[in-house]
């Protein structure tokens, strides 16, 4: 069996590009979204990130502003 990517394509940034993207922006200008588990978030997360575990994401989309860029990790 072979794998192919089948998602709607999304833009991808490496961590350095993400740092650049975030620098000079306030947290009001974009959403930094952590989709890991609460335990992982508690141990460590990128400052300013909002936690919505991936399993809950599709039910909690209304908590996010669709007009702001969303940077996900």
């Amino acid at each position: 069996m072979r794998w192919k990517q089948f998602f709607t394509p999304v833009q991808s940034m490496n961590s350095e590009e993400a740092r650049e993207f975030m620098s000079g922006k306030t947290l009001d200008e974009f959403t930094l979204l952590d989709v890991r588990q609460p335990g992982e978030y508690e141990k460590q997360h990128i400052p300013g990130s909002k936690l919505i575990p991936v399993g809950e994401l599709d039910k909690r989309l209304d908590e996010l502003d669709p007009h702001k860029p969303v940077l996900i990790y």
Binding site: F7, V10, S12, M13, L61, P66, P69, V70, I72
Partner: peptide, 13 residues
């Protein structure tokens, strides 16, 4: 999020 009306979605690889 893509296709759900979000203007820009960026994945941090």
């Amino acid at each position: 999020l893509s296709g759900k009306g979000f203007d820009q979605v960026i994945n941090m690889s």
